[in-house]
């Protein structure tokens, strides 16, 4: 919005409010990173707030030396790769078929899909069903149950059906079939939406905690979120500390725990700038009825 006039009280107050918002949003991240790489004496005296003091990496090193965290990392990366492939394959093919004009049984199929947004069986029936499929303690437990997020399926369908008919028809003339129209025309023209939804699936799979809590008992299959929860929330981080102080490192539990959390959200922090360009657009498509 363009508005002229000199800077008044209104603008100053607005600036201060937004400055407060920015600080409040950033503080936990800055504090976490600062404590993780500050030396213990400053942390104990609570002299570390926004910036590190007495830079040292012993705590991070102790975190890196813990095997559980690496197992969690390895597993989560694996779940994201496999899950992203499955989720995107299902969502793209489903959305493409649903976006076709005059699809037979379109209404009942949409009702069948949308009804699941209104009603679900709940945690126990879900657990029993997953158990009966043999998903417990398998990698499939982390990628199949939430493979499709209905809202994103609908967003993608809306995007696909907004594509001009002429483009598709020109492809038909070049001899494309029902399927190759998807791979040669629709997908290349939908890169932004595919990227956005792919990023959203990535974050969702990376952050998924509930599926693991319910269905994974084998520590070798724990995703990172479950490892962090066991170390920080349940408080097993103490063992890491005992194991490392033996080597003569001076590490305190606080830095260690913040180091663990930091490592847990690092991938999200890294991909965030790339998602950012796209998700505003994605959130907008979602709000428009298709």
């Amino acid at each position: 919005m363009v508005r002229t006039g000199k800077i008044g009280v209104f603008d100053v107050v607005n600036f201060l409010l937004l400055l407060f918002v920015a600080i409040a949003m950033l503080f936990p991240f800055l504090h976490m990173a600062s404590v993780a790489i500050s030396s213990p004496e400053y942390v104990v005296r609570n002299e570390v707030s926004f910036f590190p003091k007495g830079l040292q990496f012993n705590a991070l090193q102790a975190v890196f030396e813990d095997k559980r965290l690496w197992i969690g990392y390895r597993n989560s990366i694996g779940y994201v790769i496999l899950g992203l492939f499955i989720s995107m394959a299902l969502t793209i093919t489903g959305a493409y078929a649903l976006s076709r004009r005059g699809l037979v049984f379109y209404k009942p199929i949409m009702l069948y899909i949308v009804f699941t947004m209104m009603f679900h069986g709940g945690m126990i029936p879900f657990y029993l069903v997953a158990r009966s499929y043999g998903l417990i303690d398998t990698i499939w437990a982390m990628v199949l149950p939430n493979a499709i997020v209905t809202v994103w399926l609908i967003i993608m369908r809306t995007f696909f059906s907004g594509m001009p008919v002429e483009v598709e028809e020109s492809g038909r003339i070049d001899g494309l079939s029902d399927f190759t129209v998807l791979t040669h025309i629709v997908m290349p023209l939908s890169k932004p939406v595919l990227l956005t939804i792919g990023m959203f699936y990535t974050v969702a799979i990376w952050n998924d905690f509930q599926s693991a809590l319910l269905l994974i008992r084998e520590p070798n299959l724990f995703p990172l979120q479950l490892v962090i929860r066991n170390l920080v929330v349940v408080g097993q981080a103490g063992d890491v500390l005992e194991a490392t102080t033996k080597d003569g490192h001076k590490v305190i539990l606080e830095s260690l725990k913040y180091g663990i959390i930091l490592l847990g959200c690092l991938p999200v922090l890294i991909i965030y700038p790339f998602i950012q360009k796209h998700f505003e657009q994605g959130a907008m498509i979602g709000s428009v009825k298709g």
Binding site: I261, G264, C265, Y272, Q276
Partner: peptide
């Protein structure tokens, strides 16, 4: 900056 927290997991948020 204000969109960022949305992408944190429940575990990371609770831990912090």
């Amino acid at each position: 900056v204000s969109y960022l927290p949305y992408f944190l997991s429940s575990v990371v948020l609770s831990s912090v």
